[in-house]
Design a protein around this nucleic acid. Sequence first.
DNA 1: TTCAACAAGACCAATTTGGTCCTATTCACC
DNA 2: GGTGAATAGGACCAAATTGGTCTTGTTGAA
Lengths: 170, 170
Amino acid sequence: MQITRASEYAMLGLLALSRRPAGSIEMVDALAHEEGVPTSFLGKIFQSLSRAGIVKSARGSGGGFSLVRTPDEITVLEVIEAVEGPIALQRCLETDSDCTHREGCALCGLFSEAQDRVKEIFGRTSVAELTRRHTPFVEYEERTARSRPKHPKTAAATKPKRSRTLKLSS
Amino acid sequence: MQITRASEYAMLGLLALSRRPAGSIEMVDALAHEEGVPTSFLGKIFQSLSRAGIVKSARGSGGGFSLVRTPDEITVLEVIEAVEGPIALQRCLETDSDCTHREGCALCGLFSEAQDRVKEIFGRTSVAELTRRHTPFVEYEERTARSRPKHPKTAAATKPKRSRTLKLSS
DNA sequence: TTCAACAAGACCAATTTGGTCCTATTCACC
DNA sequence: GGTGAATAGGACCAAATTGGTCTTGTTGAA
Ligand code: FES
Ligand code: FES
């Protein structure tokens, strides 16, 4: 009964991408570090988003991902469903449900009510809306770095901080 | 992102138990067959319900389970939480959340909204209310038995139909 | 033409789910 | 009161899902 980590990362990645100028292409690695998410996992997740027509991928050197639509045209619901498949709060609510006793069962009615509410909430919020309220993970890291006595879990994520366009010596 | 089968079976078992006269004791096997659910799995699930104080167990010959409260005092929410633990639509909403970037994150706000709605729906429906709308699985079986050309999946569940009080020859 | 950057996806370990089956306890009956 | 059948309790297990990593193949730039 949980939204998977993949969906969470997908949203964070899109949030990062939405902060860029519209239509700009960005590589997965930068997005991942910006939100403190494992790079290659985010790469795999973005493949799903690409297949769902939410982002567009460009291969080869200088490649990366870019948004197909504007952030306010992307809903949280479709991001989650792109990653996890159609939302079904219970097996009887799946599209190809094989539940044996649909007729007199009172449970599916209740589950379906809850599911509708969830889908309604996720359906009416856009990526753009969340971008407004969201501060990237990396900023939080910087702000708390000095006051924090080396938190072991977040310490590892701090170092790599590279940008794709500028290339330093050696 | 699904309510587990255990919760579903727990509800079905309680629904069956609610159809009995108040306070009566019934064995798991009867409840299980009545709702078409694997017997020993339901047994394990009812242990959780027992620990949560929703049902009371009696061991030994003539034993079984009985409701502690009346069906209208049992909410669907507490049944689900008794079986699966506290509902958390996402890891950051768990009681001992270790999410690193709570502060500026916009996602948890949205997830928490959805979670509240779900808990509200499950919190305001009682077992009694569902019992009214629910017809047991076994009735559906009997009604459709003749018109159905031996459905392999449900065929096995039809036979055992024993009652605990009456004992036949041999 | 070569090389490095990149997406794509095969692969894998750990956890969770969905059960089964054996064991310990209790009661009913003799 | 002893004995055994009936019952809950809980250890155990297989399969699916999750949460990733690593290799491979493609592409553009130098
Ligand atoms: S039909 Fe499956 S839970 Fe209602
Ligand atoms: S803090 Fe974890 S999703 Fe918001």
